[in-house]
Amino acid sequence: MKRTLTQLAAALLLGPLLPVAPGHAAEATPMAANPQVEARLIAISEELRCLVCQNESLAGSRAELAEDLRREVRLQIEEGKSDTAIKDYLVARYGDFVLYRPPVKPTTWLLWYGPFVILAGAVLGLIAYLRRRARQSQPPALSATDRAAAEALLADDSGTPSRPKDAP
């Protein structure tokens, strides 16, 4: 079952590459002869950016260059190169930009850690702001007469606000 799925995925991936009429499906076998190679090809190329249409992965792009690069990656898989070696091969030619997951290194520190720096700054700012507000909005201390007045009001347990008795 899994094997069929991989083959199906490979066929979907390779389909656009092969100008084959539906009736001639057998012609596609040389390309997808090794499902393991195709599965690795898909796994690797999904992590890579197509440079022509930059929002597509190398696996999904129909651009000419993407076809060439997939062919190159397939060749290198067949030569037994590791995934990292293949990615390094493409990075050496096209730069870190081909990787959807940029590596952590000094030039990308700002990219990786920048958001956390901004978050930390925002949290510090918020704390400072809240502290200052708490200090400023402290209610003024109650004077002795105010307190007496308040207590008098509280002691009046009639519960209803007093009304002027002469009101119509």
């Binding site: 260059l65 060439d68 690069l69 030619r93």
Partner: peptide, 13 residues
Amino acid sequence: LDGRVGIDYGVYG
């Protein structure tokens, strides 16, 4: 002919 030298030079357009 097949663009492989192009790949080595990082040609994408």
